[in-house]
Write a protein that binds this DNA or RNA. Sequence first.
DNA 1: AGCCTTTGACCAGCG
DNA 2: TCGCTGGTCAAAGGC
Length: 337
Amino acid sequence: MSEREQSSSKPPTSIRPMITLPPRSSMENYFIGESGASPGPITLVSSFFTENEPETDFRSFSQLLAGAMASPTAVPNVRRDFPPSHDAAAHMNSGGDVFQLNRPAGLVASEQLGVLTIPPGLTPAGLLDSTGIFPPAQGPNGISHQKMLAQVSTQARARQQMPPPKASHKMKESSDISHSDQTYQPSNLTVDKPAEDGYNWRKYGQKQVKSSEYPRSYYRCTNSNCPVKKKVERSLEGQITEIIYKGQHNHQPPNKRGASNAQGSSESSQVTPERVSGSSDSDEVGNAETRVNEWDDDEPQSKRRYMYNLRTVMNYSVYIDKCLVLKCWQEHRGSDF
DNA sequence: AGCCTTTGACCAGCG
DNA sequence: TCGCTGGTCAAAGGC
């Protein structure tokens, strides 16, 4: 009854913003610039950092990129398969009042870090421009992109630091996952378990829905009187492909430790990259902005800006790394990257 | 014993 | 009205 009333808004599921390798021509444009007249992203990014934060520790984009590529964020098979007409903001906000994040199955690192959606035609400069993806002050659902990315980064750090999970019956399906790289193991926590967002969830249903190729699991917050539910879709490999939150927690995360382990902040569950939703965007925004505060208030705005762009680049470097897969092709062409 | 997942059945919305 | 679909219920069983 009332539960069905809560499900008044059905998020669109037909649009699945994912990153995919663009056709050769566009790939080429990303890195060498169209017609060779425009600087490539590396140039642009490098110049951005040098121009805006000359006093920072990261002196060059090469350093950033080197670090990024050496990190687990470098993942294979990044896909982008959304319609060219959509921009990133539209995709990120395509769920109406329910924010969705879709991840390519098997992209462990993207699960850790979140997927940066790079729309076709978005230039690296546009990407690095904070207004290129999100509105100047706000991102999806009105959450500032800084905070969003801060959360993404926080989660990535937390997961990288998180020790391998202890075996337990709760993770009995972990053995089904065949990831060879044990450093990615924390992501296996998602197998048969809702995302570790600091809240406790009870699964109350599972169903194979037509709109999805994967089974959809239904969870509700175990806290009494808490109306929050979430739907989780997982691929056969156990990778979460979609999480849709619904409602708003009316309590603090009971599992502080779990939240901390998973995302570095017990308060971050409202804006995990997998996240979000809410019957009211404004409510969600309010929560996100009041509860999520990775930046210290006295953090210089320029530094925030820098860190934001750094993280953006770190994400973008994942995309760049995918391009390295095409090295053979490049070698055939005899062109520099 | 308590909490959890599983899973078939049921219900409501919609075309 | 009917069938399809998504969401939820609730009994059963596991840990």
